[in-house]
Design a protein around this nucleic acid. Sequence first.
DNA 1: GAAATGACTCTAC
DNA 2: CGTAGAGCCATTT
Length: 115
Amino acid sequence: MKAENENFFDRVYEVARLIPEGRVTSYGAIAKYLGAARSARMVGWAMNGAGKFDDIPAHRVVNKVGLLTGKHHFDGTNLMQQLLENEGIKVVDNQIVHFEKHFWDPFKELGVGED
DNA sequence: GAAATGACTCTAC
DNA sequence: CGTAGAGCCATTT
């Protein structure tokens, strides 16, 4: 019980919260955006706590290949996929179709000093 | 203080 | 090209 200092988590929550509908991103992308590219696992861990927030669309966060690796942690086994399909994203075999097409890059979308 | 876990990612064979 | 193993970071116990 010390998750009050969610400074790192808060970062993940904030970025995840910025993910627009119909878009998805990967743990590595968020982690990298936070400056901890090697903390992809941490991003997922943060998502674990994100389930307590209604503004944290954890279902929009998948692994680098667009695979719903964390669907198992959702309330329902298919909830994650259902949510994605609800936003217009096609999901097959727990994998997002045209993932790169729906991929939401924080660096590019948020413009982290790109050019 | 040290060991264990984890919704990942990369490198090597 | 496919599978296997190690690495990495932060949180938790």
